[in-house]
Design a protein around this nucleic acid. Sequence first.
RNA 1: CGGGCUGUGGCGCAGUUGGUAGCGCGCGUCGUUCGGGACGACGAGGUCGUGGGUUCAAGUCCCGCCAGCCCGACCA
Length: 407
Amino acid sequence: MKLSQFYIKTRRSMAAQESINSYLLEKAGFISQVAAGVYAYLPLATRSLRKIEQIIREEMNSIGASEVVFSTLQPKSIWEASGRWDDKNFREIVYIDKESDMTLGPTHEEPMVIATRQFIRSYRDLPVNLYQFQTKFRKELRAKSGLLRGREFRMKDLYSFHPDEKAHDEFYEQCAEAYTKVFGRLGLTSYRVKATGGVFSNEYSDEYQVICPTGEDEILVDHKSRTGFNKEVEDQLKESEKKKLERVRAIEVGNIFHLGTKYTDAFDVKYADPSGKLRSIYMGCYGIGISRLLGTLAELYNDGNGLKLPKQVAPFEVVVIDLTSTKTGLKLHNELEELGVEVLFDDRDEPAGTKLVDADLVGYPIRLVYSTKTAQDGKIEIKERANGKVTLVNLEDTVKSVQKLLG
RNA sequence: CGGGCUGUGGCGCAGUUGGUAGCGCGCGUCGUUCGGGACGACGAGGUCGUGGGUUCAAGUCCCGCCAGCCCGACCA
């Protein structure tokens, strides 16, 4: 891909911002703010979000879930049926258009139950595991911290339906393992943290938290087992238990809930067991904040010069900068692209400094610079963004070296 | 929803005791440059968030509203 044909607009001057993730993502041209807690995802962010979603997609598919795309617009009747329409706490966070009696979906328990109930009549129809990538809307009283708490945000939400509690718990654990894998693949160390169920569930929930000093949650963790407790439930711990835990700030990147039969019973959905007896359906829901993950990664992977996103989520793997008047850089780019490497060629008519500064800002994991200096010895410079390591390799070995670095 | 701060060319900002708006970057043209956001010359670009009010005169003073940021409360 040539940079001139791809929309990357980095910013030279930016107002100082408290939030590192929105400052850097906006400066590097990933996002553009629309309103408090509302951002447009520009081409760079779009590519990163896709890569994050693909990793999640693979892990969700591997535990037997099917991807769907449900509607964002939801009629009032959906909420009335479950009784949530009259739940004041819940209603306060929902964008409602009173004229059409429609809402912008803040979550999808109800639509999932409604869409599946006619097909879940027998134990043979269970389990059902559906997930989607969706934009959610919630009236945050105070949007803040860039992508970490928005009023509009990307989310992966999975809903599962099971014949009994035991079956649900088994899937719940499978999903928990999948979540640990997802965050690991993204380059994050996640902690499974006990928390209250909030307005969604009367039971406990498990949150997936990533330690980050700028996070808004306070949790108590055990590093060895990668587990912990949210501050909101700490008074239920014994002093001796608390002593063993470290208190840290963190960002909640995912969570999983036991919903029990709350929603299925509300809609009176039952299935027939082998003896023909009608039974309640057990449900769970499992969320991952996609846009929040991008914010978290930006928050953790950066330095004074810009972003350092891990290669599995960086918008491109390699950038090629040719400071000579030859076609060497372009040819290299073409060759890498042929091989399936996500490579960008900076073909702008800009001074060297601009290209180098932008490369650091966007944070391409691998930067190739070909210049008259390196050309003298028939070499090219390879720089790794993550550790700043610079090596000079023979021009003909470039592709091999890049592939080695990309693993 | 309470408290604080801030709204001025595209972006970042300055604007004194009220006197009719300026700087840097970016942008356009030309030339010189080319390994860390180059340099020179010329040029384009602003109803100062918004609605009232005070005044001969308001970017500047007063009041309301809106928006953004931060703290708190709240929050899958």
